[in-house]
């Protein structure tokens, strides 16, 4: 851990910190400068999906476990927060934490058998799992069934994290994102990070180095599930309504997150965040634009576009935007010093 902190301090000394400061400054002051709720809402959504995609990428990019069922963790987090709120009047702040813990536990339990599966089978298995869980919740009347659950009328205040205006939620998710990035940075630059990536690169060779693949894959899944659960909890806090079709949705959650991840670049830490900041606004604005200009008839055209983009990414830049950026040497130029570490220079 100390080594990772040391590395972070070193990186912050360079031009990187100025860029970080500038960007953060802009993001923080944005709601005050621009009175556009749609923009703020879109950015908030981008942060939310980015948050989830970063969590997803701990498994996909760093451990090589491609999950198409992350909606399971998201949905469980969302429902946990909602149930705690609805039945026991527990504030979403605690609810989000509980969401993470619950999702993490579920991830742990699922992980035990699932870590035995390799690439394609793991992906298929998670896909099937996502469908199973969604169907269960659709038919589970005790937690709302197909109609879902709705928050009661609550006062708009910080305690209940309940506001119509997206500004507060915007700041909250930004803060959560910052914390998550910090945690992930420490993880991937520490022992766990090395071991996970070794497993991704070559599991057999990793075993010869004393690495227990089962143990570390399980760690990866649990942490990923925990973080994704928190994202689900935030969703509840923001939207006040959960139903199996949205929070357990394969297309809406699982696939979205993976597209965002691979678009941004699964082999870098902030890749998924970049992917979210590109993809979600694009999705929101094209949907709004097409919706208002062409009506519902052309619904789906943006999805075709996304499919084409995804295909292009697979063909041309399989390591996503960040991979492309890194290969161009921009990162190294900006940072000034030679990039050491996994995936570093030549």
């Amino acid at each position: 851990m100390s080594e990772a902190l040391r590395k972070l301090k070193m990186e912050l000394k360079g031009p990187l910190s100025l860029i970080l400061l500038a960007v953060t400054g802009i993001l923080i002051t944005l709601p005050l400068l621009v009175r556009n709720p749609f923009l703020i809402n879109t950015l908030m959504l981008s942060f939310l999906f980015g948050f989830a995609a970063l969590a997803w990428n701990l498994m996909a990019g760093y451990t090589g476990l491609l999950s198409f069922g992350h909606a399971v963790f998201f949905g469980i987090g969302a429902y946990t927060t909602m149930i705690l709120l609805l039945w026991w009047r527990i504030t979403p702040w605690i609810g989000m934490l509980a969401a993470g813990v619950t999702a993490g536990l579920v991830g742990f339990v699922i992980g035990i058998p699932f870590t035995r599966l390799r690439s394609h089978w793991f992906a298929l298995g998670t896909l099937a799992l996502g469908e199973v869980v969604q169907i269960i919740f659709i038919n589970w009347r005790a937690v709302g069934g197909a109609r879902g659950l709705e928050t009661p009328i609550m006062p708009q205040c910080l305690y209940w994290l309940n506001f119509v205006d997206p500004t507060v939620h915007y700041y909250v998710i930004m803060g959560l994102l910052g914390v998550e990035l910090f945690i992930l940075y420490l993880i991937v630059n520490g022992r766990i990070g090395y071991y996970l990536q070794a497993i991704r690169e070559d599991e057999t060779a990793a075993m010869a180095l004393g690495i227990n693949p089962f143990k570390y894959k399980l760690i990866s899944i649990t942490i990923s599930a925990f973080l994704t659960g928190i994202a689900g909890g935030f969703y509840t806090a923001r939207f006040g309504y959960v139903d199996p079709f949205s929070v357990f949705g394969m297309m809406y959650i699982s696939i979205n997150i993976s597209i965002i991840g691979i678009l941004g670049g699964i082999y870098s830490l902030i890749g998924p965040l970049i992917g979210a900041l590109v993809f979600v606004p694009a999705a929101e604005y094209t949907r709004a634009y097409i919706g208002s200009h062409f009506g519902a008839r052309f619904y789906g055209i943006h999805l075709v576009a996304f499919g084409i983009i995804l295909l292009a990414v697979c063909f041309i830049v399989p390591d996503g935007i960040m991979g492309w950026v890194e290969r161009r040497g921009y990162i190294r130029a900006i940072l000034g010093h030679g990039e050491e570490g996994v995936g570093g220079g030549e």
Binding site: Y194, Q197, A198, E201, D202, T204, A205, A208, Y267, E340, G341, V342, G343, G344, G345
Partner: peptide
């Protein structure tokens, strides 16, 4: 079986 995408050091 080296970890191809790692640096030699890593």
């Amino acid at each position: 079986r080296p970890f191809l995408n790692f640096t030699v050091l890593d």
